[in-house]
Design a protein around this nucleic acid. Structure first.
Ligand SMILES: [Mn+2]
Ligand SMILES: [Mn+2]
Ligand SMILES: [Zn+2]
Ligand SMILES: [Zn+2]
Lengths: 157, 157
DNA sequence: CGGCGACGTGAAAACCATGTTCATTTAATA
DNA sequence: TATTAAATGAACATGGTTTTCACGTCGCCG
């Protein structure tokens, strides 16, 4: 707990970010959430738990975590951003269940290789890509295609 | 002219869409735009050209064209939807220049194959994917990485 | 310690793409 | 041409996100 000039004492020492009660709370709540979560939902959990963190601060903190590469971000169908504390420091892609929100990292190495070859093939530089994968997980599929979403979200969105 | 019950006499005969002056104007303007364009920008062009089309109608028409599979849609960094009249009736992915907006369809067959194999590998069903590719095109790169965006958009966004 | 200055906070308001309402217009058909 | 369901669009609503700005506090230095 010293003088680290970091966002968290131990982790997340992004450059020039002070360690504040609010940022620690956001990072902590995010760390205990196994699935992608929205800024609003995260804020709701923090306040429901009795904490005192402004929605503005949640948005700002998540944006900074994104810049620092500490979270993965996807956008749902409505365009809302969802965040997940990144377990490793690698670039990843996820398959997300449209019913319950469960996420599963996928091995997209084939895509990475393909994307890397695009630069030469097209003459474009500084290539970036986003790849969003959605589907219906096994648990959300009772047998046929009866109910659109038979079960409640595992990690309520 | 005739009694086609279509959106346009000749093209775009999506089911149950009337041919109106506004829809023809939107489809026409979209057809003469070589790059992805937003609903707002398309509306601006229509009104600047002296036309009389409501922004609401532009949004509605683009949504219908999307449903009918007549346009490709991407989302830019801010989440705004951009539309391009689809040249063929195939599913495509594009590489888009972050400077000028120029788009270039890419051969993503490798990705399609990879994505198709995900269902078995993961147990998820009804898989869908979105793949957005961005970069800096050759024309927008004078030599090094000097200016962030040296030239004006070819097809002003 | 104590103070200073930059950074952080948050309530309120602004922003902005997009959707909805609903009275009016209009395309398609008989 | 009469009829009617569909289409239009101005005004309004929505909802996620950002900006504002007055106030708080973190971290460093003396
Ligand atoms: Mn990737
Ligand atoms: Mn594809
Ligand atoms: Zn599920
Ligand atoms: Zn370019």
């Amino acid at each position: 707990m010293g003088t680290v000039g970091a966002m968290e004492d131990g982790h997340a020492r992004a450059a020039g970010l002070r360690s504040t009660r609010q940022r620690r709370a956001v990072l902590d709540a995010l760390g205990r959430c196994p699935e992608f979560i929205s800024a609003q939902e995260l804020h709701a959990r923090l306040t429901d738990a009795g904490g005192t963190v402004g929605l503005t601060t949640v948005y700002r903190t998540l944006r900074e975590l994104d810049r620092a590469g500490l979270v993965d971000v996807v956008r749902d169908d409505s365009g809302e951003r969802l965040y997940l504390r990144r377990p490793t420091d690698e670039h990843r892609h996820y398959l997300i269940c449209r019913c319950c929100g469960r996420s599963q990292p996928v091995d997209a190495e084939a895509v990475e290789v393909w994307a890397a070859g695009l630069a030469e093939a097209t003459g474009f530089a500084e290539l970036e890509h986003t790849l969003e994968l959605t589907g219906v997980c096994a648990d959300c599929r009772p047998g046929g295609a009866e109910e659109p979403c038979p079960r409640q979200p595992a990690c309520a969105r």
